[in-house]
Computed example of a mutant assay.
Amino acid sequence: MTVASALAEWLSKIESLSIDTNHITDGSDKYGLFKAPNRDIKNHIDGSYEITEYYDFFARQASVSQSDRQDSDEWLENLSYMADDAGTIYELPDLDGNRRVISITLTGAPYVMESGSNEVLYHMSISVTYEREREV
């Protein structure tokens, strides 16, 4: 399983969402997770290493009424807290292939990326740090 798939599955379990990877469909209450092009690596003496990968999470929410927009703000705030509590309240996702998730962090506050008459596209950046043991 890819890290992106594990992250999408983890977010889906906690928030009961259906999240596409590398795609977001039209319509409200649609979600997409895209891998960003940057990656950080920290090598350890024992041959293992830590990898931090970055992801862009998009949420398309209804914005017809003021209450829709307030609901979206509250939902995004709660999603931010969920990311803050990753590893303490919420169990981190499982990975295969000698990999173990160390942390999930919200690296940027949710913001409006695009606004239309009926929907708003929100964006937030998420980092996942995991450890991988090399096979020797």
Rank of each mutant, 00 (worst) to 15 (best):
T2N: 14
T2D: 15
V3H: 09
S5A: 15
L7Q: 07
L7D: 09
A8I: 04
A8Q: 08
W10R: 01
S12L: 08
K13R: 07
K13Q: 04
K13L: 03
I14L: 07
E15Q: 13
S16K: 05
L17V: 01
S18A: 10
I19H: 14
D20C: 01
I24A: 05
I24C: 02
G27E: 01
D29V: 01
G32H: 12
L33V: 00
L33D: 04
F34M: 02
F34T: 04
F34C: 04
A36N: 06
R39C: 01
D40V: 12
D40N: 13
H44I: 03
H44V: 01
I45R: 10
I45G: 05
I45K: 06
I45M: 11
I45C: 08
D46H: 08
S48W: 03
S48I: 05
Y49G: 03
E50W: 01
T52Y: 00
Y54D: 06
F58Q: 00
F58G: 00
A59I: 11
R60T: 12
Q61L: 14
V64S: 14
V64Y: 14
D68L: 14
D68N: 13
S72K: 07
D73M: 14
E74T: 05
L76M: 15
L76S: 12
E77K: 15
E77C: 08
N78H: 09
N78F: 02
S80T: 15
S80N: 12
D84Y: 11
G87C: 04
I89R: 07
E91N: 13
D94V: 06
G97R: 10
N98W: 05
N98Q: 10
R99K: 15
R100A: 10
S103D: 14
S103F: 09
L106V: 03
L106P: 00
T107M: 05
G108K: 13
A109W: 06
A109C: 06
Y111W: 12
V112S: 03
M113Y: 11
M113I: 11
M113D: 09
M113A: 05
M113Q: 07
S115G: 03
V120D: 07
L121T: 15
M124S: 05
S127M: 11
V128K: 03
T129M: 01
Y130Q: 10
Y130M: 09
E131L: 13
E133I: 04
E135I: 04
V136K: 12
V136M: 14
